[in-house]
């Protein structure tokens, strides 16, 4: 069926409501179909249902509750971590240095002991008895049998 025509003075004619239709058609070319996008069947109805069925009020209360618990748990964890750090107060480097120092100390103690043993002679142990007595008296470690020894 031929569209009703609208005639112009210069002889041209166009279908009635052509420009109105043109606008609609032009707008429709910018629709998502024209862009190539699609959605699953009845997507918007399903989206509406899915969102409407969400109980957002209770969800937000649950969220607040859980964030409070999470906050307490995080604080406790932080305290434990700080305590551990405070009491141990060692890191890997410090521990390594300590081990090296202990090893060095043991080795040197051994050396000193060995040297002392080597250098002990009759002269080195010839200590004045009075000096030794006064030293031991000041330290209050005089044995009962000290005088017997003298």
């Amino acid at each position: 069926m031929k569209d009703r025509m609208k005639d112009y003075e210069d002889g041209f004619s166009i279908p009635e409501n052509y420009f109105k239709d043109l606008e609609i058609r032009l707008k429709s070319t910018k629709s998502f179909h024209f862009e190539g996008f699609e959605t699953p069947d009845q997507y918007f109805d399903k989206l509406q249902n899915k969102l409407s069925n969400k109980n957002l009020s209770s969800q937000s209360i649950r969220f607040k509750f859980s964030s409070k618990i999470m906050g307490i748990a995080a604080s406790l964890l932080f305290l434990v971590a700080v305590s551990l750090q405070f009491f141990s107060n060692k890191n890997g480097v410090e521990e390594d240095l300590e081990v090296v120092y202990i090893d060095y100390f043991i080795e040197n103690i051994d050396l000193i002991t060995e040297e002392d043993i080597i250098n002990i002679t009759e002269e080195t142990i010839d200590i004045d008895d009075n000096i030794l007595y006064h030293y031991l008296e000041s330290e209050s470690v005089i044995a009962d049998d000290f005088y017997d020894l003298i």
Binding site: T39, F44, L47, Q48, L51, S52, L56, S57
Partner: peptide, 17 residues
């Protein structure tokens, strides 16, 4: 608020999407 939420979705779902 639930009624408002339904109305909000109905009004804006397609444009926003």
């Amino acid at each position: 608020q639930n009624e408002g939420f339904v109305l909000l979705i109905n009004q804006y779902k397609e444009k926003l999407y």
